[in-house]
Design a protein around this nucleic acid. Structure first.
Lengths: 330, 330
DNA sequence: CGATGTTATGTAATCGTTTACATTATTTTC
DNA sequence: GAAAATAATGTAAACGATTACATAACATCG
């Protein structure tokens, strides 16, 4: 730590006051060219870099945005994060990421970073908090939900129009002549699951197909779980599957294969998120692609607005695209 | 921001001095039970949480560990990160993650977080910095390299014994009767690539097989790239492949399939990292599994030691395990 | 009961910045 | 060339915590 200097050291070396050094560093206009140069020389010679604890304390801002995610092991997220980072940097903000592993206490701790003045605002992907808690927190600190949001809460969010995406995905299956469409989802109460189920139902209804609750199957988002759920399922009385994740779609295809059912010849399968396995696997998997980069970008824009005025709340739904591959023979 | 309070507010409300509040908050022993209670009551009523900028500035420590990664979109990393987080938390530290996207300037900025007193030390996975730069930085701030390290630099690291792992993987192929083993690697000068190539060569030599430089093929770590590289390769004069990533192994298998070459009947394939696609794909892929969680854990242990005495440097190599699957018919 | 030791609290300096305000240097104006 | 206006710099007070030191309250002891 020998050569970590303070603004005092720079001031002394440049033969000016700390105020002048500060003005130079903050590009204040009222400083003579020659003193500017002297100060910068001292800064460079010492390799001085300001102590942000001091600065942030004084300025009462950190120029940091916190991203809270359940886990970074989520291929879907990486592009969202990139969108957040790029947009944040453009606006002079840094970004830090923290995992919750869906643990309530960990999530609370992360949120406290803003109360503790270590960060100016939060972009949160999924949350274990209740509507009430979220309302309360959002009233106090700038927070934007991303991808998943808490239904009914008075909190800004940006997400995909999951209802419409599901509606289109299922309509596409129906257009392919499918009538018995299994909806493979997760019973977690997430906004996305709920909206997709609704979209599924609406598409059926609009095409005169009666909803059959036996055609709803539940798993978690994982691959192995999907394999075993579909293997265990009593009847294979469906001609298409609409899964809420690509991993689930992949597991489903594997399980069907084991049961001598061919995809897409016998059953069409469509997944969600368009992650890498959807094009790596054979058959490759038709999937609903979300606009992840744009989602991250939008989240930052909303957050920055909230950082300057936290009373503003915005709710944004983004588009999507169905990427057709082998699992639906079109 | 209405009800974000300072220690002053708590002191006033509890009718004591700020020093006493601070003592309560820091569990100093010299405080009467009754005042302790009064203060805590005030803390709770106000929902007070300390301003860490103030605290950190005064204490000159942050209790934060920074993880710098090329990108979080790396399935290999997630378990490393979990290991880091768990161990950090056990020791009263928080963890924040930042991406570099292998951009030199971004990396520099991240490293400055420690100089800027926003973090106490760094765990770095991969780096674009030169040996000299790294030496210089490591002399000043606590830093541990994880997974990849810079050869010859005087910097602590923890990694897998890639030489031995490669040696074992190739020996396993040889034991399966294979003699013409393609080494599918990345020409990036990373410590892992170099060690694995050396291990490959050593295994050949120890089994009396002459090294043939035409059996080295280069790609990047990705899937699509691997497919096209192997498709374009003139000769398929090999009976086994040792790839330095599972994605490369997967791409290789797909390309061979397209050329009517069967895995594992004609060619055995072994990958590295044991990521999810290695068991999701058919044929499933034999892969070298690293001890990621332990790697993260060890990295924190070394880092904490360095935070208290930065002159200590430790270099640790961890074990691994070959997970056998369908791509090598054993 | 007064001296002494111990425990509990308060006062004020400090961490490294920024910035309002005061002051000095320089330029403009007549 | 003096007065007025402007530009450049310095001084010192914040920001919100911790903590060395001073002091007050209480207990112990002969």
């Amino acid at each position: 730590m020998i050569d970590i200097h303070t603004i005092q050291d720079v001031a002394k070396r440049a033969g000016v006051s700390v105020a002048t050094v500060s003005r130079v560093l903050n590009k204040s206009n009222n400083v003579k060219k020659s003193t500017f140069d002297t100060v910068m020389e001292a800064v460079n010679e010492l390799g001085y870099t300001p102590n942000l604890m001091g600065r942030n304390l004084r300025k009462n801002e950190t120029k940091e945005i916190l991203i809270i995610v359940p886990t970074i092991m989520n291929t879907f997220l990486s592009k969202v994060v990139k969108g957040i980072e790029d947009t944040a940097h453009e606006n002079g903000y840094s970004v830090i990421i923290r995992n919750t592993y869906e643990d309530y206490t960990i999530e609370q701790n992360h949120i406290n970073m803003v109360k503790n003045k270590l960060s100016d605002g939060i972009i949160m992907v999924g949350s274990t908090l209740s509507k009430q808690e979220l309302d309360e927190i959002s009233a106090k600190i700038p927070i934007v939900q991303c991808s998943e949001y808490t239904i009914g809460a008075n909190v800004s969010y940006v997400t995909t129009d999951n209802f419409k995406a599901a509606y289109d995905a299922v309509s596409y299956l129906i257009a392919g002549g499918k009538r018995r469409i299994l909806h493979f989802t997760v019973d977690n109460g997430f906004s996305s699951s709920i909206a997709r189920l609704e979209g599924y139902k609406a598409a059926l209804a609009d095409n005169g197909i009666e909803f059959d609750k036996n055609l709803i199957e539940y798993g978690n988002y994982g691959y192995n779980n999907a394999v075993s759920v579909i293997k265990k399922r009593e009847k294979t009385d469906f001609d298409a599957v609409f899964a809420v994740s690509d991993r689930m779609a992949a597991g489903c295809i594997r399980a069907l294969e084991d049961r001598q059912i061919k995809v897409p010849d016998d059953v069409w399968v469509i997944g969600f998120d368009n992650i890498d396995i959807s094009y790596i696997l054979r058959p490759s998997i038709t999937s609903v692609a979300q606009k992840q980069y744009e989602m991250g970008k939008k989240a930052v824009q909303i957050l920055l607005e909230k950082i300057s005025d936290n009373s503003i709340n915005r709710k944004v739904m983004l588009g999507y695209k169905i990427v057709k591959r082998q699992s639906t023979a079109d």
